[in-house]
Simulated assay, not measured.
Amino acid sequence: MTWTAVLALAAGTYLLRLGGILLRDRVTMPERLDRLVDLGATALLVGLVATAALTESGGFAGWARPAGVLVGGLAAWRKVPFVLVVILAAGTTAGLRFVGVE
């Protein structure tokens, strides 16, 4: 990729973010559209988590990683402190891999 393309993409990203800040109070969205935007952000986050948790190198990541993500998600849902959420998720994954579950 050339430097011109990189700089153009960087400038475009910056302008889009700046536009959101500058137009926040000037543009109003209908309530239904606002709800759909919220749902779209949630769907995007779920898709990213699912991809990261379930795949590795284009294939299935094994059962240990999704189990760790599930334990971490349950701990976060129960409002456990974030450091403990990370320790529980990593510990679950490591423990399962230690006993031979890939």
Rank of each mutant, 00 (worst) to 15 (best):
M1P: 09
M1R: 04
T4C: 03
T4K: 11
T4A: 05
T4E: 10
V6G: 00
V6P: 04
L7Q: 10
L7P: 01
A11C: 05
T13S: 08
T13Q: 00
Y14T: 04
Y14F: 10
L15S: 00
L15V: 00
L16I: 09
R17A: 04
R17Q: 10
R17W: 02
G19F: 05
G19Q: 02
G20P: 00
I21A: 05
L23F: 02
R24E: 01
D25H: 04
D25M: 05
D25L: 04
D25Q: 09
R26W: 15
T28W: 13
T28F: 14
P30K: 15
R32G: 14
L33C: 09
D34L: 06
R35T: 15
R35S: 12
R35W: 09
L36Y: 12
L36I: 09
V37S: 09
D38S: 15
D38I: 07
L39A: 12
G40Y: 07
G40F: 02
A41R: 14
A41T: 15
T42E: 06
A43N: 01
A43E: 02
L44D: 00
L45G: 08
V46P: 06
L48D: 05
L48N: 03
L48G: 08
A52N: 08
T55N: 05
T55R: 11
E56F: 07
S57P: 01
G58N: 06
F60E: 08
A61K: 11
A61T: 05
W63Y: 13
A64F: 08
R65V: 10
A67G: 07
V69D: 02
V69L: 01
V71R: 07
G73P: 11
A76K: 01
W77M: 13
W77D: 02
W77G: 12
W77E: 04
R78L: 08
K79L: 14
F82D: 13
V83G: 07
V85I: 06
V85L: 04
V85N: 07
L88M: 04
A89T: 09
A89R: 01
A90D: 03
A90P: 02
G91M: 08
G91V: 07
T92P: 11
T92A: 06
T92Y: 07
T93D: 06
A94R: 06
L96G: 02
R97T: 13
R97I: 14
R97P: 12
G100S: 12
V101F: 12
V101C: 12
E102G: 14
E102V: 14
